[in-house]
Amino acid sequence: MEIILKEDIIGLGYKNDIVNVKNGYGRNYLIPAGKAVIATASAKKILAENLKQQVHKLERLKAEAEKKAEKLKDVAVEIAARVSSNDMLYGSVTAAMVADELEKKGVEVDRKIITMRDIKKIGTYDAVVHFHKEVEVKIPVTVIAENAAELAAEAAARKAEAAAKKNEEKQAEEAEATEEAAPEAEVEETPQAEEAPAAE
């Protein structure tokens, strides 16, 4: 079904956009929640008239969005999170965490206009801030291990443990080889001991 959005819905469209959605989504959620109206011919006419009248307002909104975007031009975010030994995070890094980090840098951004996939591993990712339908900013988000020293110590301990185990196995093999060689020597000596009385 065709609808007109009455507000921005990230992933679907922006206010006053005409979009197609599944009937159930439109009738059961968007329209009852006041987020959209059915795009009838008269609704489209009204929308066109409103947009004509709002041209200056829309330009002002776009200019404001561009100013906000300018503040984020060279901003990068680094988030420290607790990490397991295989570089997987305990939990995940979300848009709300990115919004908090931006606030610490003096830029207030509503977490609802930030889109990104949930991050579950350390590395560098992109978060997109949607200020306006024509103004979007990509922010690099680097996730680092909060407990790096702990993990390094854990890895070193594991390495030492593996080396000790290898050493133990090597010693056990050597001991086994020595034991196997010893009985053979005894077997060779036994016939000689038996031959001696026969010679008398």
Results as ranks from 00 to 15, higher is better:
79 I>M: 04
98 V>R: 00
80 A>M: 01
146 E>T: 04
142 T>D: 13
151 L>N: 03
98 V>Q: 02
93 V>R: 00
106 G>S: 03
104 K>M: 06
57 K>F: 07
90 Y>Q: 09
111 R>L: 02
100 D>M: 00
151 L>E: 00
60 R>L: 15
116 M>D: 02
65 A>S: 12
68 K>D: 14
119 I>L: 05
73 K>D: 14
142 T>Y: 07
108 E>N: 13
146 E>R: 11
65 A>R: 04
138 K>Y: 04
138 K>N: 08
95 A>F: 10
73 K>Q: 15
65 A>M: 12
144 I>L: 12
150 E>F: 14
84 S>V: 07
146 E>W: 01
64 E>D: 12
73 K>E: 14
137 V>H: 01
98 V>E: 01
110 D>E: 12
130 H>P: 11
148 A>V: 03
146 E>I: 09
121 K>E: 00
59 E>S: 15
80 A>Q: 13
128 V>L: 02
142 T>C: 09
71 K>M: 14
71 K>T: 08
114 I>N: 06
116 M>I: 05
153 A>H: 13
91 G>H: 06
83 V>P: 02
138 K>C: 07
111 R>G: 05
105 K>F: 03
135 V>F: 09
115 T>P: 05
109 V>N: 05
123 G>V: 10
97 M>W: 04
79 I>H: 02
121 K>N: 06
92 S>L: 04
154 E>Q: 14
136 E>Y: 09
98 V>S: 05
89 L>D: 08
156 A>D: 09
141 V>T: 06
97 M>Q: 12
143 V>D: 10
72 L>N: 00
113 I>R: 15
126 D>H: 05
152 A>Y: 04
89 L>F: 11
144 I>E: 13
58 L>K: 13
86 N>Y: 10
81 A>I: 07
60 R>K: 15
109 V>W: 02
156 A>N: 07
108 E>D: 11
119 I>C: 01
108 E>T: 10
57 K>S: 11
113 I>C: 11
116 M>S: 07
60 R>F: 12
105 K>I: 03
151 L>G: 05
130 H>W: 11
93 V>I: 12
121 K>T: 06
